[in-house]
């Protein structure tokens, strides 16, 4: 396997296109995946293999965890072109040309660092199997909605299952990140998860009529 920083190469759509048509030296299918900012060449994987399988078994990227392989548990969560996805529901060969980011590629500073630190500080990690997926999902949520209220947090993390913590410590970690980040944004009085717990949302399909 080769690994080169993606920035150093033409990783655009055209590059992906060419990689898509090439056969590997061993006669197996060959394509490239941009994983955590590195272009990795995939040789010898089966075309029917999921992104999860190729990341773990072919590329040795164990930052994604394998549990249900049915899209239900979130242990295999990654960002695919910036969008949270379960890598077991994606065919790896179809991810050629996209940017795949695992927990290991979220970066050592900023929001992702805060999320990891608060998971530890708040006791949100027990066996740790679900943690990589949760950290990716929480980072994704707080990137999109820094001030998400309790209901929004629960909804955003519904695709991630934890068998150990009972979720209370995980929610506490999310609120702690919000509090810390809120304190950084000076003068923002609405950053505490507590103050927003009862915030009204109209995300559900049981809203009233809006056409009369």
């Amino acid at each position: 396997m080769t690994a080169v920083p993606a920035d150093g190469l033409d990783a655009g759509a055209e590059g992906a296109d060419r990689a898509g048509g090439a056969a590997g030296a061993d006669g197996g299918e060959s394509y490239r995946l941009n994983v955590d900012g590195f272009l990795r060449t995939v040789n010898g994987a089966s075309i029917g293999d999921s992104l999860l399988t190729v990341l773990r078994d072919t590329l040795g990227v164990t930052a994604v965890k394998d549990a249900c392989e049915q899209g239900r548990c979130g242990a295999c969560s990654v960002l695919l072109d910036g969008r949270l996805a379960a890598s077991c529901t994606v065919l790896a060969a179809d991810a050629d040309g996209t940017r795949v980011v695992t927990v290991a590629g979220l970066g050592g500073a900023g929001l992702a660092r805060a999320v990891r630190a608060m998971f530890l500080a708040e006791g949100a990690v027990q066996c740790g199997f679900c943690t990589p997926g949760f950290v990716v999902a929480v980072t994704d949520l707080l990137t999109r909605h820094p001030d998400a209220d309790e209901e929004e947090i629960r909804e955003a993390l519904a695709g991630n299952i934890c068998r150990c913590t009972g979720y209370g410590r995980i929610l506490a970690a999310v609120r702690a990140v919000q509090a810390e980040r809120g304190a950084l944004r000076s003068g923002d009085a609405h950053s505490s998860g507590e103050t927003q717990r009862h915030g009204e949302t109209q995300r559900h399909s049981d809203g009233g009529p809006d056409g009369w």
Partner: peptide, 14 residues
């Protein structure tokens, strides 16, 4: 609203 109650964030994104 119907789309918002499908699966999880992961499923709705994909």
């Amino acid at each position: 609203r119907a789309a918002r109650v499908v699966g999880s964030v992961q499923i709705r994104n994909t």
